[in-house]
């Protein structure tokens, strides 16, 4: 299979890569770029552990082919904190103990980050629906929802 050259912005920096056309965005980001924050939990778009933000939208990177990254603006969990300062979403997940094993956490944080750009004053039910594509087996979700509500409140949404 002929490899394809792609260029995109990754966490604010330009990237040029040669990728196999049948590789997923998740695989390329994890294996070629060694950014392993996004996880593979199912490989079928069912668990959300691989969520990244592409041109502002939260996507399951296990369902996106690597060549589709070409020309896009891509954000992974590694691109959120700057100079050791966490984003409000990251900090809220820590403050509310909204994580346990942590495997689903990058996916939840990326979904939350994208969702709160779309909806700045979500209701609890809207948050629950927005995050129901991300599975967590440890926390029971309560603290995740509370973390998101806290971010909304502190941003002045409530």
């Amino acid at each position: 299979m002929k490899k394809i050259d792609i260029k995109f912005i990754l966490n604010g920096e330009p990237v040029e890569l040669t990728v196999a056309p049948n590789h997923t965005a998740l695989r390329v980001i994890r294996e070629q770029l060694d950014l392993t924050g996004a996880k593979e939990g199912c490989g079928a778009g069912e668990c959300g552990a691989c969520t990244i933000i592409v041109d502002g939208l939260a996507v399951n990177s296990c369902l996106m082919l690597a060549p589709e990254l070409d020309g896009k603006n891509v954000l992974t969990v590694e691109g959120l904190a700057h100079d050791g300062k966490l984003t409000d979403v990251q900090q809220a997940f820590i403050d509310h103990v909204a994580l346990q094993c942590g495997y689903c956490t990058p996916g939840f944080i990326m979904s939350t980050t994208a969702f709160l750009e779309e909806n700045k004053k979500p209701t609890r039910e809207e948050i629950e629906i927005a995050l129901s594509g991300n599975l967590c087996r440890c926390t029971g979700y309560k603290r995740i929802i509370e973390a998101v509500e806290d971010v909304v409140a502190k941003r002045g949404g409530k």
Binding site: T76, E78, L86, Q90, P106
Partner: peptide
């Protein structure tokens, strides 16, 4: 959690 920062940053 002592592992909090490591887990929210990937």
């Amino acid at each position: 959690r002592v592992d909090g920062v490591a887990k929210v940053t990937g």
